[in-house]
Design a protein around this nucleic acid. Structure first.
Lengths: 189, 189
DNA sequence: GTCTATAACTCGATAGAC
DNA sequence: GTCTATCGAGTTATAGAC
């Protein structure tokens, strides 16, 4: 077996394990076992458990690339484009990575430091210039967008609240985009 | 030291520890140490770690009692009343309990079973009859409300996203209540 | 390339002394 | 009422054999 292949198998197993159980509740041993290798090999390739976790958090997509068309969308369809892109990302190959990040982000106080500047941050930083206005309400707008998208992520992918969890992307977009559009571009109190 | 006092000290220490670190990352030993007692005593009073955690999840308020005035509010101010009550609850004595629940709920797959039917469920079940309509869209409405409130909780209390985290209750109400009002009572696509 | 062996801890839980 | 002592299992991580 080539080293690269084995490395990849370990990485995949780790991603799934962290996605299912978060950082704390996942043991290096269980990852090794799922990958069909010895525990020592995991350390050999990735160092500490923390480093393994960080190696796991590589998004299979480039946020800037994915968001480019969104940011180019007409302003009145900004939220719709943004939300659709986000929902499709959550259903893509990136799902385990995102779940792992969320589980770890919310599960312990140093979660944030562990996953610092991850998904939401990435998406939101790109969104900043687009939602800014003369009054400088960008931070508030971004925080509101973050709250609704984080809640959607948790409801759909972590808690599995029905009917939201099984709802087609387009229906979720229709229901929630107006909220985001208001947070992004409409006048706030 | 009376047994009741010690029991209470252990319970308080456990609540804070679980709120800070979630279920997995909190050790019985650390709880004991924070309470100034031996680890064995914790087991003596509460049994297993899981039982200790469940004992911790006793809300210091009765949801039905808190929500009664909300449900009696005029329909067009339902969201506003609901959200204000929720935000005040999060800032009250109940904060550690709620944080503990959230951290555990999102951190592992059996989190939901551990905290089954907790906070959001409680609030939402009371809300159900109020948001129902002839088309039977209550489940969708409740899921949407859950997504925004869960996101708000995470943004404000778990991730500490500014300026939302430090924002006065009334300002958050002004910004977010319209979203909830739409989810609760307005026509959906 | 991969595993054996093991060090060095920490964990939950229990029995029983004081 | 509270703690000592301890069991047994599980953890990360490393050194080194094959």
């Amino acid at each position: 077996m080539s080293a690269a292949q084995t490395r990849q198998r370990i990485l995949d197993a780790a991603r799934q394990a962290f996605a299912r159980s978060g950082f704390e509740a996942t043991s290096v041993r269980s990852v090794a076992s799922a990958a069909g290798v010895d525990q020592a090999l995991v350390h050999r390739y990735f160092g500490t458990k923390r480093e393994l976790f960080l190696a796991t958090l590589e998004l299979p997509v480039d946020p800037a690339r994915v968001l480019a068309p969104v940011l180019a969308a007409p302003r009145q369809h900004l939220a719709e484009a943004f939300l659709r892109t986000l929902l499709e990302l959550w259903d893509s190959d990136a799902e385990p990575v995102i779940l792992a990040a969320v589980r770890t982000l919310t599960s312990t106080p140093d979660g944030p430091s562990l996953v610092k500047g991850f998904v939401l941050d990435l998406a939101l930083s790109h969104l900043r210039p687009v939602v800014d206005d003369p009054v400088g309400s960008a931070p508030t707008r971004l925080a509101l967008v973050a709250s609704q998208t984080a809640g959607l992520l948790v409801a759909r992918k972590v808690l599995g609240i029905e009917p939201l969890a099984s709802m087609p992307v387009e229906q979720v977009v229709a229901l929630v985009a107006p909220t985001l559009q208001r947070y992004m571009t409409e006048p706030l109190p």
